[in-house]
Nucleic acid binder design. Sequence first.
DNA 1: GGAATAGTGTCTTTGAGACAATATATC
DNA 2: GATATATTGTCTCAAAGACACTATTCC
Lengths: 232, 232
Amino acid sequence: MAYDPRSFPPFAVTVDIVLFTVSDTLEILLVERGGPPFEGAMALPGGFVAPDESVTDAAWRELAEETGLDGDLLKGVHLEQLATFGAVDRDPRMRVVSVAYVGMCSVRPELLAGTDARDAVWVDVTQLRELAFDHAEIIATGLERVRAKLEYTTLATSLAGEDFTLGDLHRIYEVVWGIELDLANFRRKVLATDGFVEPTWQKRVSPAGGAPAAVYRAGTATHLSPPLVRPQ
Amino acid sequence: MAYDPRSFPPFAVTVDIVLFTVSDTLEILLVERGGPPFEGAMALPGGFVAPDESVTDAAWRELAEETGLDGDLLKGVHLEQLATFGAVDRDPRMRVVSVAYVGMCSVRPELLAGTDARDAVWVDVTQLRELAFDHAEIIATGLERVRAKLEYTTLATSLAGEDFTLGDLHRIYEVVWGIELDLANFRRKVLATDGFVEPTWQKRVSPAGGAPAAVYRAGTATHLSPPLVRPQ
DNA sequence: GGAATAGTGTCTTTGAGACAATATATC
DNA sequence: GATATATTGTCTCAAAGACACTATTCC
């Protein structure tokens, strides 16, 4: 198909990041909009793709700017492309196609210390208010992606810290899926999957009491086969 | 984040379609490029998104133009967004971000009868030559998507015709996955999944001999749980 | 009859899920 | 001791996989 490079229809291309973390609940990073449209509403962090950077690079740049994380800490974050949203009127000002990304990280004090992150907050996904643009739809898509990914990948470890107990990992599954899982069967499943977690040979006690728990770190496996499927 | 609508970085946005069908092998629809760059190379069908159409609409429009299918027959085709490819230099002429879609259809004589389809051909995915742009990567992504989708959805029926035998469906799985599957266990699995297929109460004989086979059509279910997983 | 396809039966093994039991920490 | 967490054990049931067997068609 031949075409004239000077007469193409002009679009703006942006990236939006749905960054998840697990504390007591499943939370995403949102920013408050300071101007119209949707002034005062919450929105996903994101911004324009620059002419000289790839879409993926733009996503990583925005992630770094909004979280204040730098090189080494960024490597602990998982980021993957989610989907592209290209309805004609999704932005009332102009034609914008947005490539959404899903991120998963563990909460750290360094987060939100960056310069661009002054207005960024973690919000419980079950307590979302009005959202700007089509960001509610993007978040719903991202939420389903994360829930599905926990079934057949080891990505839950990216929501845990550097090291974690099987109780921690169990809680991440329960919080993300919003259901209760039998801990005994969960433990067996995780330990039976080669490369999901590896022992650090250390023990850790919980402030709430209980026996000391073995501490693990993420293994080298990326996929779970057979998967760890959601009940029901 | 405030920005000036008149000073955004300009991009072209295109759609590319990876349309699969199963005949004796797994095949995709390709067009031969008539001009530079990559003149003479095979490329995915696709084109620009118009200013007044959504990205999804553009994908359906291109699909219709390239296959020559119209309203009713198009409904038998499954089309879904695959991923977006946005490397800086993926098109040597200008900055282009392409949203790729995956399609699945059964081969029909009406295909390739459209005006834009004169150069379109079905190519065995195992026999691909040099491809234009990053289309080899797009195809590889689409291929893995289709293979994975057969595991946990009923989409194999969109690669079969209006009605089909379990032998037909079995062959589709074998061709797409490139492996042999035990037919007896496959039959039981399909029939045990509510809504995967429904009987038409008709029988069909194969030209190669054998007992007459019961004819089924697609059921109403979209997901398989538990999934029909690839061996190994 | 021989080859090809359709369909059923059966046995083994694997794994998911329910749930009991025991051990060790904090308060 | 009460409570919370960690860890192991056991039993049942569902499903996957291997494979034998029968039936019906074309050549």
